[in-house]
Amino acid sequence: MTQKLGERIIEAFLFVSAATAVTVVAMITIFLVREGLPVIVKVGVANFGLGMKWNPIAMTGEPSYGIFPMIVASFYVAIGSLVLAVPLGLACAVFLAEIAPAGVRSIIKHAVELLVGIPSVILGFVGLVLLVPFIRDHFGGWGFSILACSIILAIMALPRIISVSDDAIRAVPKDYKEASFALGATHWYTIRKVIVPSARSGIVAAVILAMATSIGETMAVLMVAGNVSMLPSPIYDILDPVRPMTANIALEMNYATGDHAQALFATGVVLFIVVAVLDAISHKALKSKMGVER
């Protein structure tokens, strides 16, 4: 009977451990809202979310807390990174899953794993000392730009897209491929018309997840974005500097007080919601794929 009691106690401990993550998530939500909500209420949801002007320490007049340019910037750089990383990543994944000889595959797989492990601050640093001057010298502008952010984020997103797409492609049943080959299709035609379409939902999930990760990334964009909280003008000028939401928090949290600090928490709330929604969509895409295959 003491053995039974021991088992019960252990199970209780395990349950508490398991509940830790969800507790932390709940507390994150509570603290963010507690710290961030008052200022949103104070300035108004529209003025906060759609306001164009971020001027938290106004010398004269009222400070303003509009984060619309930052929301745009976060999406802008993330989508820019996908434009660069998705075609390349997908091609790499197809290469790994379909073409690469075993030896090459294992080398590239390991290279990809190592790329995941490189701290984002180092990629930001490389962007700062290499990419920013390069853009300044060859494309003009200040160098700190949407383009620089997108390239650095693309390098970060690349390994993630490669490995998830690789898994998705390898999960496509061999029969499909053989059937297509047996009809006289070339390998490339088979890849394009049969294999990649069959893996589509897995790939879509990977892309959305990569977008969420890019929007949530701080250090890499902070060091190359230029951090000007205005919309690029004209809006398609990718050589203009921007300030994504993450950078806004990182830049000012260390000295912000009062409403200003609360406005940064409010930025965090928006960021949290955006990323959570994207994660949920990605999960959904992946789950529906499983549903079809089973």
């Binding site: 993550a21 969800v22 507790t23 998530v25 994150i28 701080t218 928090i249 965090g268 960021l271 990323v275």
Partner: peptide, 25 residues
């Protein structure tokens, strides 16, 4: 289900948001 969801959710929280929470809490 809630516990599993919590783990997935926490994995998706941007690191800067965890930083904010760490500061506040």
């Amino acid at each position: 289900g809630i516990i599993t969801f919590g783990v997935e959710c926490l994995a998706g929280v941007p690191s800067i948001v965890i930083g904010l929470f760490g500061y506040a809490f």
